[in-house]
Amino acid sequence: MKTKSNIKVLGIIAVLVVILPLVVQNSYLLQIFINIGSWTLISLGLTILLGYAGQISFAQAAFMGIGAYTAAIITVTLHWPPLLALITTAVISSIMAFLVGLPVLRFKEHYLALITIGFSVMVFVLMNQLSDITGGPGGFIGVPPFSIGSFVFKGDIANYYLIWGTVLISIFLIINLLSSRIGRALETLRSSEIAAKSMGINTFLLKMKVFIFAGVLAGIGGALYAFQLSFIAPNTFNVLESITYLTIVVVGGLRSVWGALIGAIVVTVIEKGLTHLLPLIIPDAGGELESIAYGLLLVLVLLFIPDGLGPTIAKSFKNKRNMTKSSKLKTLDQSN
């Protein structure tokens, strides 16, 4: 039931995604849509990991960084074609996720939070220090655009379709996953691992698979980001950015496939709003102020709408519909 309606919604979104660039031909807006797409992609893995499986991770930005730098190094330093680079990126981020998950996933909650933060910090240090390979704090310049054979994804529109195509496919895969026995098993990790084990679920292996899946999504997201911008720098993959992704899924709704998408839209709107409005109020305010907004948003949503926007809106919508239904029934009763 839920699966069917989710697939329907996905279809509608797919149509919207296809039409949008035909209607909106403003390149600033197109950039914003691309941005929403890549944030959704990075956050999607976190929806599954945190929202469904109940495992916190601050490593999303680090995995994005691993993906971006792998793609950059492979295409520029090794001169491999971008498609091969993207596939290699997926493989390398899954290996990295496996290696990190092996020691880390035995821990829970604040320990897991701390160690994934620690991993991110370590990755960040390496990005800055190994400047022979990564270009150091100044960044890595000249990543070519993505291409398949002779078709080059050059320009905003091509990149828009590339990223949103990946997002839609990922959401489709996740909808299927969640409606399977594996999806139900994932949800058991959140409330009782002991009962899950008693039901025959290899909880460690399952956590590992989700962690790898989230890592690969972030890695691919990072690679696409590198292809699109052609320039990457360590600061994009800082731990603080992981908190942004966390904010996105919490705001959008942790236990909804649409949480990442809704959250990415809301956070992007807030970010763009701030960049336009803040200078009017505080003239010398820098970009760092966005982070206060994210922090505040995170706290307020957790305190007042812990389910996140997506499920809360859906619920009130449903209630309204039920109410109109029941009021209709009432009028029927009265007319009888």
Partner: peptide
């Protein structure tokens, strides 16, 4: 996890206000 995220968020807010 909620309290972890809340304290994390508060940290960011305090950082921002100090800025």
């Amino acid at each position: 996890l909620t309290t972890i995220m809340v304290t994390m968020g508060l940290g960011i807010v305090i950082t921002g206000i100090s800025l």
